[in-house]
């Protein structure tokens, strides 16, 4: 109809509106990603222009590298632990925040805010709080008599992993809360009240009434968060740089180190392709779940 004014048909106008999006997506997302996939099959030293075809050499290299497998294992551990904790805390806090008590908006604000805090800021604060000699965490634990000796939060492999997980849980639990809370607020009150009249206790009520209502949103949230947590780079890099040793590497940090410290762009790209495969699996799962829900 607007065609009358601008001399364009609706279809043309539709394409015109879509054009900026398509152009930006092609030039700055699809092209670089495709370029990266191509690089996975080439050998490239960054100081030299030569690009030599390497077949599957890059993949062979990373698959033979024990650090790659360690990074993959650690990535799975860090993702799984983060997701489980985020989901548990997220649902619990959302239930709390769904209570109709006075001043709840203040609590809501304070509990959701960590999601907005820049990763750099959290990493700085973590490095300060968990500093073994000067940090408030060790001092408090010692003060409370819980520990005798300083815990080396960031230079002991197990504690370093725990610290990165804590950081991730702190920052992203609010995300789960937001999604769950949005769903909780849409649950008809009558459902719960009916159950209360039936004399059901709080736990069975949650289990049989609330949880089934949350199932759909939780599935989506968990799939999304799993993919994104698996891909995270800054949370780990800024806190531990993957250390001590390579004990907090995940695949993103591994790829970054291959590219920048080892100057192996091909190996980094190959790692990226492996990550893409993981993402693809996650997306297929997601779309299938989405379809199930729509059906």
């Amino acid at each position: 109809m607007i065609g009358r004014h601008a001399g364009l048909s609706d279809r043309q106008l539709g394409v015109l509106f879509l054009l900026p999006f398509v152009a930006v997506a092609c030039a700055f997302i699809i092209y670089p990603a495709a370029e990266s996939v191509r690089l996975a099959f080439y050998s490239k030293l960054p100081f030299r222009p030569a690009l030599t075809f390497a077949g599957l050499d890059n993949f062979r290299y990373i698959f033979e590298d024990p650090v790659f497998w360690a990074a993959a294992r650690q990535a799975v551990l860090w993702t799984a632990a983060s997701i489980v904790l985020q989901t548990l805390f997220g649902v619990a806090i959302a239930l709390l925040l769904n209570e109709a008590v006075r001043g709840i908006n203040v609590f809501r604000g304070l509990l959701l805010f960590p999601y907005m805090v820049p990763t750099v800021v959290i990493a700085l604060i973590w490095r300060w709080m968990f500093n073994p000699e000067m940090g408030v965490v060790n001092a408090s634990l010692k003060g409370a008599g819980l520990i005798q000796r300083d815990i080396y939060w960031l230079s002991d492999p197990a504690w370093a992993m725990a610290s990165t997980i804590m950081l991730n849980v702190w920052k992203f639990t609010p995300f789960v809360v937001i999604c769950v809370l949005a769903r909780l607020q849409a649950i008809p009150l009558e459902l719960a009240e009916a159950a209360q009249v039936d004399g059901a206790g709080a736990w069975p009520r949650f289990l049989h009434i609330t949880l089934p209502q949350l199932k759909a949103v939780l599935v989506v949230v968990i799939v999304f968060r799993t993919v994104w947590t698996f891909n995270k780079f800054e949370e780990i890099y800024l806190l531990t740089r993957g250390g001590p040793g390579t004990s907090t590497f995940n695949l993103a940090v591994y790829a970054f180190e291959q590219a920048t410290a080892n100057l192996k762009l091909g190996a980094a790209a190959a790692t990226g392709v492996v990550m893409l495969a993981f993402l693809f699996a996650g997306s297929v799962l997601y779309l299938r779940l989405l379809r199930q829900e729509e059906a």
Binding site: F28, I29, Y31, P32, A33, E35, S36, L39, V227, W228, N231, F233, A252, A255, F256, A259, L265, A268, A269, G272, M275, L276, L279, G282, S283
Partner: peptide, 11 residues
Amino acid sequence: MVPSIIYVFPL
């Protein structure tokens, strides 16, 4: 869902 670590260098 594409991790930025993949396309940051080509970009």
